[in-house]
Design a binder for these strands. Structure first.
Length: 130
DNA sequence: TTTCTGACA
DNA sequence: TGTCAGAA
């Protein structure tokens, strides 16, 4: 099942293709790369080459944006996913469930709405996450 | 022609 | 985020 993962990680699309596939502007795509949300490789000419994985992430970002989540919130989501996968190597299992994501989005929503005295990094103290 | 980086009336 | 410039 590793072959499949490698294929999805193979960077082959130029930004133009990604733009039409995701309906995002080159500006946005490059910006998301700056935010470390995607990590496209570069070809000989310094052109960004995106993988199917990158496109999936971009599509997810688009959905979050459509739901009114700001960049800070989106970054948190991916930061959590990353930390989770690192923790995974130590604690054997535990994945962020859809429910966790929903709770995170809800917290973010309250934060954005100013209905909460916020402190974004709080739930990274994943004591109650498990 | 397409993409890259940097900058901002 | 859009958009323009100058370069590759």
């Amino acid at each position: 099942m590793r072959e499949k993962e490698l294929r999805r990680s193979r960077s082959v699309f130029p930004i133009g293709t990604v733009m039409t596939l995701t309906d995002l502007s080159a500006r946005q795509i490059r910006y998301y790369e700056e935010q470390d949300l995607i990590h496209p490789e570069r070809n000989e000419g310094n052109r960004r080459m995106f993988s199917l994985n990158d496109i999936d992430v971009l599509l997810e970002i688009k959905d979050y944006l459509a739901d009114g989540i700001n960049m800070a919130g989106i970054k948190q989501i991916y930061t959590l996913k990353k930390e989770e996968s690192e923790t995974k190597k130590q604690k054997e299992h535990q994945m962020i469930t859809d429910e966790d994501v929903r709770r995170i989005l809800h917290t973010e929503f309250l934060s954005v709405s100013g209905l909460m005295s916020k402190e974004p990094t709080q739930y990274i103290d994943s004591k109650d996450l498990f």
